[in-house]
Amino acid sequence: MKSLAELKELRNKVQKEMKKRDQGTRAEIIVGMGTCGIAAGARDILKAVLAEIEKRDLDVRVTQTGCIGMCEKEPLIDVKLPGKEKITYGNLSEADVQKIITEHVVNGNIVSDLVIARHK
């Protein structure tokens, strides 16, 4: 990094890319992969997400994040559809993942009995 200006340029570029991602056609699933999440089974949840996406041949970006504080409700995942608010689901089982992908990611309906909150 040569200067503060260069950092700001990089920031704007990354922000633009993230914005593009938001307005594009790709949905995003973020799995909580802190130690608390992993201990509660987040690795199996991540595998279930990938398997379900593969099975349905969906174009979804899968990423990870750290502990958001609600360790009691792990495993947690966020679902972000393009142009929509991010929705957090908690206390998940692998079967719940299938349900969330079928109903929310594919059909756009929030699975109300698993939802925890939405991000503004």
Binding site: M1, L4, V14, G34, T63, T65, C67, I68
Partner: peptide, 19 residues
Amino acid sequence: CGQIDPEDIDEYIALGGYE
């Protein structure tokens, strides 16, 4: 925490990181 991918430096920078 819980908002960005911790293994992606770009996400930290996008949120004003290293400024």
